[in-house]
């Protein structure tokens, strides 16, 4: 939208008000946070998954978490590629301009693009071990994830949704990749918590995102960082996260089965 700067006489430099109002807002959140702290750290959030909902993509999936994270994924099966060698998986991760909290970010901003590219690379690393790329020589498979609302654990939800979309597109896979996020609250003796919500994730001292191929019991992605801890501490987080992945698996499988049944009952005209 064109903006007339001569008519809008604001100061030359502006700062988001959220930063200065943060003190009050934080208290309110902390009260909510107290409720969240009472949450069982091993508890998973309600998960909704649906495969095969977009008509224009070969495969698609929608995943929603109880914390408000909504991800829509579309996948396209093999297309011819110019370069020789085994198939390549091309991943894309986009955030809707209104996905985050606070002011709307400019979609084309460099920092935004950078973050999206990093998430896309993480998505590809998580999915590559699950897809039988050797079966698609000289071909390209594409997955695109769109984050509609970020309520925490966005990358983990995107991994689950992208794996569902690929499976829904009929791509040969070893297994579904299931993502799960964890965080450790800033309190010194706090334990790891499964599937953090957005405020928890923002304040966390350490974060970890995992992806697991449950049937093969293979970890396809580990990505995390934050305040240091001994290996036992991270190992405990890893165990908790893997358990979380295993518990999400039946829901995702069920949604895939349901999509296949729907497709059979309504044959393409």
């Amino acid at each position: 939208m064109p903006l007339d700067h001569r008519r809008l006489r604001g100061p030359e430099e502006s700062q988001p008000p959220a930063l200065w109002a943060a003190a009050a807002a934080e208290d309110e959140e902390d009260e909510k946070g107290a409720g969240a702290a009472a949450r069982d750290p091993c508890a998973l959030r309600p998960l909704f998954a649906r495969a095969g909902l977009l008509s224009q993509a070969q495969g698609s999936a929608y995943v929603e978490l109880g914390s408000g994270t909504k991800v829509l994924c579309a996948a396209w099966g093999p297309r011819e590629a110019a370069e020789p060698g085994p198939g390549r998986l091309i991943c894309e991760f986009r955030r809707a301009p209104f996905a985050g909290r606070g002011a709307r970010g400019r979609p084309g901003a460099a920092a935004e693009r950078e973050a999206e590219r990093e998430a896309a690379a993480a998505l590809r690393e998580a999915l590559e071990p699950a897809v039988r790329l050797g079966r698609y020589p000289r071909a390209r498979l594409a997955v695109s994830a769109l984050l509609l609302q970020d309520g925490g654990s966005a990358l983990a939800a995107a991994v689950s949704a992208a794996a569902l979309a690929l499976a829904d597109a009929g791509v040969e896979m070893y297994d579904l990749a299931v993502g799960c996020a964890l965080c450790r609250p800033p309190a010194p003796a706090a334990s790891w918590m499964l599937q953090p919500a957005e405020p928890e994730e923002r304040r966390a001292a350490a974060r970890l995102t995992l992806a697991l191929l449950p049937a093969l019991n293979q970890v396809s992605a580990v990505l995390g960082g934050g305040r240091g801890g001994p290996p036992e501490d991270w190992a405990q987080a890893l165990r908790l996260g893997l358990d979380g992945c295993h518990r999400q698996y039946p829901v995702l499988r069920q949604s895939l089965l349901r999509a296949a049944q729907r497709r059979r009952s309504t044959p393409p005209s």
Binding site: Q218, G224, G225, G228, G229, D233
Partner: peptide, 23 residues
Amino acid sequence: GAITSMKKVGKGSLDPESIFEMM
């Protein structure tokens, strides 16, 4: 000896037990 970040790289996947050993 504190671990501050972890990342898996590469096309393959890892067994959970081997990740613990690697740490």
